[in-house]
Amino acid sequence: MIKNSEYRRHTAKMLRKITRNWELYLFMLPVVLLLFLFHYMPIYGVQIAFREYKSFRGIWGSQWVGLKHFQRFTNLNMFPKLMRNTILLSVYQLLAGFPLPILLALALNACAAPRFKRIVQTVTYAPHFISMVVIVGMLNLFFAPSTGIIAILLRKINLLNGNLTTLMSASSFRHLYVWSGIWSGLGWNSIVYLSALSGVDPYLHEAAIVDGATKLQRCRHIDLPCIAPTIVILLILRMGNMVDIGFQKAYLMQNSMNLDVSEVLSTYVYKQGLQNAQYSYSTAVNLFNSVINFFLLISVNAFSRKVSEMSLW
């Protein structure tokens, strides 16, 4: 009896809180609605990966076909090549692109001239805000066969006669892709490390100076260990996205000559899905990709927890 009245009082209090705060629910409404329309409805639609989707039948009316599309994809002649292209590109990107921002952050941190430091920061952060279209456009201009600045400079130092074929050759696609990415992301990616470095306890440095440590020794034995957790966490995150090459840049850089190496999973999904209107098949390929990434993230995280006792969760 007492319990019941207490429960009732509690409910009344709760109701009062809800009615008093009715505006807050109104404030949440747009977010809830937009997420429902553009996130939850597509998530619900992922089931067409297991169906034979026909527009006029809708999602529920389309026939259930199980793993047919997944089997078709893994049996595809192109399957090994697609996986290879995607993985090679991301491994290359990771190996070449991961250490440089750390180097930049350490160098900026050690730089004794504040003005020079500011200039370097301002300039290196800037390319992050340039659009992907412009970056790829710049690549096309700079590496243009006869009039590009690269061809001109190479001719000046007698390393090239005739035309530059970089843009047309399949073998240079990966280099172009990765190094232009490094160019545009170098400064931006160093910010995280720089802010981690600003948290290094100055007493550590003072103590080291008293003990007669050189700057190099301080950089190696104080700065680097202090940002190690940040490095590991970012590495885990990056490795979790290993089989995920962003669509935009790969698509923009594709041409008929480099298609052999530039066709990655995301561009394949786009072409099959929207250009060939194979909705179910394309969704299945995309889902396959996401599942791989998910397991990759989990296993990298578990591995890191075992080895270094650092993990995301």
Binding site: L35, P42, I43, V46, V269, Y279, S282, T283, N286
Partner: peptide
């Protein structure tokens, strides 16, 4: 929770296209 789920799962290109 409602919001966090959308950070980890997404429908992907085609389901989003069909929704739109």
């Amino acid at each position: 929770i409602y919001m966090t789920i959308t950070m980890f799962f997404s429908g992907g290109l085609i389901p989003t296209y069909l929704t739109v």
